Simulated assay, not measured.
Amino acid sequence: MHNTTLPPAQSERTPPKEALEQSEERLRFFHHELKQERSRLKELTSKVKSLRLKTSYFNSARTYRASLKQYHIWEPGAWVVLPPALGLVMLILIDLITGFRPVSVVGAVLMIVISLVALLALSKYPSDAELPQHMEQTKNELAQLSRKAAQTETRIGELQQGLEQELALNANLVAQNKERERISSARYQCQQLFNENWRAMRSVEFEQYLERVFQLLGYQTQTTNTTGDQGVDLIVEKAGRRIAVQVKGYFHSVSNSAIQQAFTGMRHYNCHACAVVTNSKFTASAIELAESTNCVLIHEDNFREFVFGEIEFV
Rank of each mutant, 00 (worst) to 15 (best):
E43Q: 11
S46W: 01
K47H: 09
V48P: 03
K49S: 13
K49F: 04
S50A: 15
L53R: 15
L53S: 12
L53P: 03
L53D: 14
T55Q: 15
S56E: 15
Y57N: 00
N59G: 03
A61E: 00
A61H: 01
T63F: 05
R65C: 04
R65D: 03
S67D: 10
S67C: 10
L68M: 08
Q70F: 08
Q70R: 13
Q70V: 01
I73V: 06
P76E: 05
P76S: 00
P76Y: 05
A78E: 13
A78K: 06
A78R: 03
W79P: 02
W79N: 08
L82R: 09
L82W: 02
P83S: 09
P83E: 11
P84I: 04
L86A: 10
L88Y: 13
I92E: 11
I92P: 02
L93V: 12
I94L: 12
L96A: 11
I97A: 15
R101M: 10
R101V: 09
P102K: 05
V103A: 15
G107D: 05
G107C: 09
A108Q: 01
I114H: 04
L116C: 08
V117A: 14
A118R: 05
K124Q: 14
K124D: 07
K124W: 10
Y125K: 05
Y125F: 12
P126R: 06
P126C: 04
D128R: 05
D128M: 02
A129V: 03
Q133N: 10
H134K: 15
M135A: 14
K139R: 13
L142N: 07
A143R: 03
S146I: 02
R147M: 08
K148S: 12
A149N: 06
Q151F: 07
T152P: 04
T152R: 09
E153P: 00
T154F: 14
R155E: 15
R155V: 07
G157S: 10
G157W: 05
E158D: 15
Q160F: 01
G162C: 01
L163D: 04
Q165D: 07
E166Q: 15
L169C: 07
N170D: 07
A171G: 12
